[in-house]
Design a protein around this nucleic acid. Structure first.
Lengths: 196, 196
DNA sequence: ACCTGAACACCGTTCAAGT
DNA sequence: ACCTGAACACCGTTCAAGT
């Protein structure tokens, strides 16, 4: 038994029940070990969730500076991050998002991209938070949609009938709104102080 | 004892522990009744959460059409909705957001505002989802921040150091990015088909 | 009808005892 | 050292029995 096996088993179980409700007992059963054996590898459930989060985000790469214009790099990064989370059906990040080293790595990636784009130092935390907020909401919306279509075929939680197939498009749409707004701020601040 | 008293007690308890972790037993203790008595008024915990959500959102008003330009009405609505949720420390909306009648009312309000602004029918679900996603993320960010500052004074979950005081500013900033982007789409579609 | 005690089927985690 | 059974202090909810 190893930490890796435990994380893998947790992810497997989270395909059929939300990770937050996978019990240590069920996890142990899956692994074929007594419950308390898990505690030799993982101090508690919160730590397990952090390990799972690290695993999920580990292979999201932050595009290097030479990979294109800042907004394209941002788009790629966010798209990949969202996909990595969405790939695991029962995973949600409601709490403790940045106790994980990988989440910090990605957040730093976003900050680097913003810095390389030339944003005013004052704007960087604001821009970061806007992108972070949207991303968090998107992960939540994705999870809600998956939960809804697991229960009943359709019947989404949005009143009009915003269909699930629209969701990828909606992500791009919303994200583009943010990026376009940020690009406009950048032009504006550049035209006011042309040097640097 | 009444449904109202139960909801009130749940909200009171959620000031010190996250609503999702307020137990029926603790709620009963607070009300000074045996646990099972609650079940005469509320079928289960999920229903209770829905009632709480309705209570919280009930006094958020959707600005009427004569209350100003569409983007200003949208700003007021979202600002008020966020404030209503943020007012209750331990409340989060991760799951089942639109089982509540009040949430549906507000969502319909957003859709009406978008329609009154003159968006193309195809854009409305996308614009709605973008705003909804951001709002959901904001509620989550607010809750995370409150949880973090309850445990330890500072030490936020964002890497750089996005301070809590910045949060209101960040909400306006991100929301403005979305609104500005939407306004631009509106201009664009108007200039292409000038009639209507 | 409305109420509620006891019980059921769960939780995460501590702790002491085993090798 | 590593392992783990038993126990503790909880859960939400069902069910049967009370008025």
């Amino acid at each position: 038994l190893s930490e890796d096996e435990i994380v893998t088993a947790a992810l497997e179980l989270s395909a059929s029940t939300p990770l937050e409700r996978v019990s240590m007992r069920a996890l142990a059963a899956r692994l074929g070990v007594p419950v308390m054996t898990i505690y030799n590898y993982v101090p508690n459930k919160a730590a397990l969730h952090e390990l799972v989060q690290n695993r999920i985000l580990a292979d999201v790469v932050v595009p290097t500076t030479d990979a294109g214009p800042w907004d394209e790099r941002m788009r790629v990064l966010q798209r990949e991050a969202r996909a990595a989370v969405a790939r695991h059906v029962g995973v949600r990040f409601a709490s403790g998002i940045a106790e994980s080293a990988e989440a910090t790595r990605l957040a730093d990636g976003v900050l680097d991209i913003l810095a390389s784009a030339g944003f005013e130092p004052d704007d960087i935390p604001l821009a970061f938070t806007a992108l972070f907020t949207f991303m968090l909401g998107q992960v939540e919306v994705d999870a809600m949609t998956r939960a809804a279509s697991a229960d009943r075929p359709v019947d989404l939680q949005m009143p009009t009938g915003v269909d699930p197939p629209v969701l990828d498009e909606a992500f791009e749409y919303g994200f583009d709104l943010l990026l376009a707004g940020l690009a406009a701020k950048l032009d504006h601040s550049r035209s006011r102080s042309p040097r640097r």
